[in-house]
Amino acid sequence: MPYRLVLLLSLFILAPTLYAEAEIERIRLGDGIDMDLRRFSAEGDTLLLGFPCDLGMGRAEAQAGEVLSRRGIEVWMADLLGAHFLPIAPSSMRSLEGREVARLIRHAVETTDKRIILIASGYGAVPALRGARMWQAERPEDTRLGGAILFYPMLNAHNPQPGQPLEYLEVVHHTRLPVIVMQPTNTPTRFWVDKLKHTLEQGGSRVRVELLPGVRGHFYDREDATEAERAMARRLPELVEQALQQLKQMEAP
């Protein structure tokens, strides 16, 4: 039987009063760290494990997870920063080495027969890719980690300086996954996305870039969102489904 595709939407944080239908599971990740998983169960062949960006509480992501579960895609949401009592900030996401992500992948492998796709946004891409690399080193024979969907990933090693080349974190050079990059056009990172694609490909990844016209990063949780950004935010479940379909095409022989 083919593995079912698992989208692990893990680190999107949601308000419990708004999404009472989600199942809540507390898991022990080791080193005395407990994490709450909110699970939107589905009968389909997909499970999302995802990671929030550094801004906001992930309300839009949670709403998207609920919609996706109704469409047959199982969704797990985990509060990675909360497990460490860390503030929602870029420095918090960049400080995580990925061990928790690798343990979440292991938990999914041990408790489901589904295939796993990571999804992350902004600086959440950092622990997501680090955890994927750790998992692959630990279980190189296991093929159930099927790829990653990255919304406006922030993977640079330092803030860009005028006249200086952009450098990426070490994990970018060593990632070996099918990757879909969902890149807004109204943001400076648009001008570096080709270099990011090339760097990932040099490390062994297969990469597709999808441009999201007329929107900025964090387009689905901005207080100052434009009408174009609000419209794109309403399409978030559709964008994820399209990225999943592209990953399937990339995996085909």
Rank of each mutant, 00 (worst) to 15 (best):
M232S: 05
E229V: 07
G124Y: 02
P213T: 09
D224S: 11
L196C: 10
I117L: 02
T143Y: 04
S205R: 09
I117S: 08
D221T: 07
L145P: 06
T185Q: 14
M154V: 08
G214H: 09
L196T: 03
A132E: 03
A137P: 06
H158C: 06
G204Y: 06
R130I: 07
A128V: 09
A231F: 01
T185D: 13
R216S: 11
E201F: 08
H173A: 12
L169C: 11
S121L: 13
L196F: 08
D221M: 12
T226R: 13
L166Y: 06
T175W: 00
V193N: 12
E138W: 04
G203H: 03
V193T: 14
M154C: 12
R176K: 13
D224F: 06
L155A: 01
V209H: 12
G146K: 06
A137Y: 11
H198G: 05
L150E: 04
L211R: 12
H198L: 08
V126A: 15
A157M: 09
I117N: 01
G163H: 12
G146R: 02
Q164K: 02
P165N: 12
F191C: 04
L155P: 07
V215Q: 08
I116Y: 05
P184E: 08
I116A: 01
K197E: 09
L150I: 06
H174Q: 15
I149Q: 01
G147M: 05
R230H: 14
S121M: 12
N186C: 08
R208Q: 07
V209T: 14
D224E: 13
T189Q: 02
D221L: 10
R139D: 15
E210H: 10
T226V: 12
M232L: 00
Q183G: 12
Y123F: 13
Y152P: 05
N159S: 13
M154G: 05
A157D: 15
L150N: 03
L166W: 02
P184T: 10
R222T: 09
L150P: 06
T187M: 04
N156E: 07
A120I: 15
E170L: 15
I180H: 05
R133V: 10
A128G: 09
R208T: 00
Y220T: 06
V209E: 10
Y152M: 02
A225P: 01
L196N: 06
P165C: 11
V181L: 15
K195S: 04
V179N: 00
M182S: 10
F191V: 10
T189H: 09
D194L: 05
W135F: 14
D224L: 08
R133A: 09
E138L: 00
S205Y: 04
L118C: 04
V215W: 04
R139C: 14
A148D: 06
G217R: 00
Q202A: 15
Y123M: 11
E167Q: 12
I180D: 01
K195I: 01
E223G: 11
A148R: 03
I116C: 05
L155W: 02
Q136Y: 11
G203D: 06
G122N: 07
A231S: 09
L196H: 02
R208I: 01
L212A: 13
E210G: 05
V181G: 09
L212D: 04
F219P: 07
E167W: 05
D221Q: 13
E138F: 04
T175G: 03
P178G: 03
I149R: 02
Q202I: 02
Y220G: 02
L211E: 15
E223P: 04
H218P: 04
E138P: 00
Q183A: 15
H173M: 01
F219V: 03
D221C: 08
V209M: 13
V172I: 05
G147Q: 00
